[in-house]
Design a protein around this nucleic acid. Sequence first.
DNA 1: CTTGACCCTCCCATCATGGGAAGGTCCATC
DNA 2: GATGGACCTTCCCATGATGGGAGGGTCAAG
Lengths: 143, 143
Amino acid sequence: MNIGQAARASGVTAKMIRYYDEIGLVRPSARTESNYREYDDRQINELKFIRRARSLGFSMEEITRLLSLWRDRGRPSREVKAIADKHIADLDARIAEMQAMAETLRHLSHCCAGDDRPDCPILADLTEGSAPSDPPAHRPRRA
Amino acid sequence: MNIGQAARASGVTAKMIRYYDEIGLVRPSARTESNYREYDDRQINELKFIRRARSLGFSMEEITRLLSLWRDRGRPSREVKAIADKHIADLDARIAEMQAMAETLRHLSHCCAGDDRPDCPILADLTEGSAPSDPPAHRPRRA
DNA sequence: CTTGACCCTCCCATCATGGGAAGGTCCATC
DNA sequence: GATGGACCTTCCCATGATGGGAGGGTCAAG
């Protein structure tokens, strides 16, 4: 299979397949004489694996580790579970953070007339700044 | 106030203050002869505004609009509310998405022994891929 | 007048992804 | 056997908000 066929078979774009090759995550099984990438079922399954893991919000770094465990027939499931649990905790933390934002905003929006007049509790809050206790962290986001 | 004092007064890093200047969001009130940025209370308040808005997860694009409404004494609160409500909807959507991920993972993790044996429902799921119905969208992250 | 703390601009990196240009390859149809 | 279109290749650039750092100028206290 060339890259386009692999893309259709796996649901991963050709662009991303090239990227995974570049970072050494999934290498083509071979190259044709004319330098085309060739993939077989093994790689297709790995690409599907990655796609599914991405859809569960794992970062590429986590996926790299998951994929290497997946390839290792003797892996201890403990390691897989640890990665998953860590990711669950990350998700929960981000969910809580966003829920707090949403709740604050819901309250402010509820108090806002939303008409032609300029008075607005939302802007008032942003002005007064109910001091964001935590200086907004720069946390790299993952899907 | 120079940029360092403005940073301490507003809680925004000097680096970001330069960035906001560059993108035209908050310009210094003046430059000294030696080209140092100078800020006064007005800008400090705007920087605090931005910081607070960021902590509520607004994107810079939304903040640009919020800030221009904030500056406009004749703004209709309707417009502010519309931005906030849209953002709440965005947050809710992302929360729901992440909760679905977390729930799926919680289930899988619960079913995983997490010991020395290689059998692992987490990897099994990633392999089978309970077909991610929505091709994982490339949604620019904000927060 | 030196020293250290500050400021300036400019460049690079992040992370996963897409867009696009310039050029080579393959296959089917004329 | 040529031509065209669909495909492949590599390479570069952009995203959003943020940090890091180099190389060089400025200021104020000692």
